[in-house]
Computed example of a mutant assay.
Amino acid sequence: MSLNNEDLDAIRELVNIGVGRAAAMLNEITCSHIILHVPTLQVIRIDELDAACGLPVEGTAATVKIDFKGFFTGTTALIFPPESAAALVMAITGENGDQPELDAIRIETLTEVGNIFINGVMGSIGNVLGQQITYTPPLYVEDSIAQIVWNARFHADERVLLANTRFFVEDINVEGIIAMILEIGSLETLLEKIAAVRGE
């Protein structure tokens, strides 16, 4: 399915609202200014996800993912390249997350940040569209993005709505990427709800 400019703008606006809300919370946690880049949106195949995120196909990333269901169904993930994950943990906890004995602190910290961001985005979508969305608890994984998706319930026919929203935490060089993976039919449903809210 291809999206026209109007569709892209509508989804981008929803994602921006949620990321902005989440960034304000992260700003308080890190005491650093958060710089947001307007998301690029595209519909791609699952096997194109790593390349589209700018990650090596064989590389691993620290990823927090939450499954959701309601008027549309899928998974939203917050992806940190390895260097960004380590820098963010150090900024929040003061500890070097690369030390093996601190793995539990690293995972807990990144999971909480992922939870804040993903709930900010999905909560905003639900609120603006007047729809209820339910979530699974956040899950932290380290693997290639494509492998994470293949290990879940998704099939080759699914397409990824990649809301490639990058944010930077000033002074500590942290980058994060948000990807929304939708089951077949969910993208169409999302667009229909947006149109209904707009009175189209």
Rank of each mutant, 00 (worst) to 15 (best):
Met25Asp: 13
Leu8Phe: 04
Asn5Asp: 15
Ile172Trp: 04
Asn115Pro: 04
Glu158Asn: 15
Asp143Gln: 05
Thr111Phe: 02
Pro56Asp: 00
Val38Ile: 11
Phe71His: 12
Asp143Thr: 06
Gly18His: 05
Arg45Pro: 00
Ala10Glu: 05
Glu95Ser: 11
Ala196His: 12
Val64Gly: 07
Glu142Pro: 02
Leu3Tyr: 10
Asn151His: 15
Ala51Gln: 14
Glu58Cys: 00
Thr63Tyr: 01
Pro39Gln: 12
Ile181Asn: 03
Val89Phe: 03
Leu88Lys: 02
Asn27Pro: 00
Asp98Phe: 11
Ala85Lys: 08
Ala77Tyr: 01
Gly123Pro: 07
Met1Glu: 08
Ala62Phe: 01
Thr189Met: 11
Pro82Met: 11
Leu129Thr: 07
Ser84Pro: 01
Thr75Gly: 02
Leu49Ile: 13
Ile46Met: 02
Pro100Ala: 07
Asn151Leu: 12
Leu139Thr: 15
Tyr135His: 15
Thr60Val: 02
Gln147Ser: 15
Glu13Phe: 07
Ser186Ile: 05
Leu49Ala: 13
Ser144Leu: 02
Ile66Phe: 01
Val89Met: 04
Phe72Val: 05
Val113Pro: 00
Asn5Tyr: 10
Val149Glu: 06
Phe71Arg: 14
Asp50Gln: 01
Arg153Lys: 13
Leu88Phe: 08
Leu102Arg: 14
Gly74Ala: 01
Thr75His: 01
Gly94Ser: 04
Thr30Gln: 05
Asn119Leu: 07
Val113Ala: 12
Glu112Asp: 12
Ile145Thr: 10
Pro39His: 10
Leu36Asn: 05
Pro100Ile: 04
Pro82Tyr: 09
Ala195Thr: 10
Val121Leu: 11
Glu170Val: 04
Val141Pro: 00
Ile194Lys: 08
Leu182Met: 13
Ala52His: 08
Glu200Val: 12
Pro39Asn: 09
Gly97His: 03
Ala61Thr: 01
Leu110Ile: 02
Leu36Met: 13
Glu108His: 11
Ala87Pro: 03
Phe154Ala: 05
Ala24Asn: 14
Ala91Val: 04
Leu187Tyr: 14
Asn4Ala: 08
Asp9Cys: 07
Arg159Ala: 12
Gly126Ser: 15
Glu28Leu: 14
Gly126Cys: 08
Phe167Cys: 04
Leu26Gly: 03
Glu192Tyr: 13
Val141Leu: 10
Gly126His: 13
Ala61Cys: 05
Thr63Pro: 03
Ala195Ile: 06
Pro137Asp: 09
Gly94Glu: 05
Glu6Met: 14
Ile172Met: 07
Asn173Arg: 14
Gln147Glu: 14
Glu112Cys: 06
Glu200Pro: 02
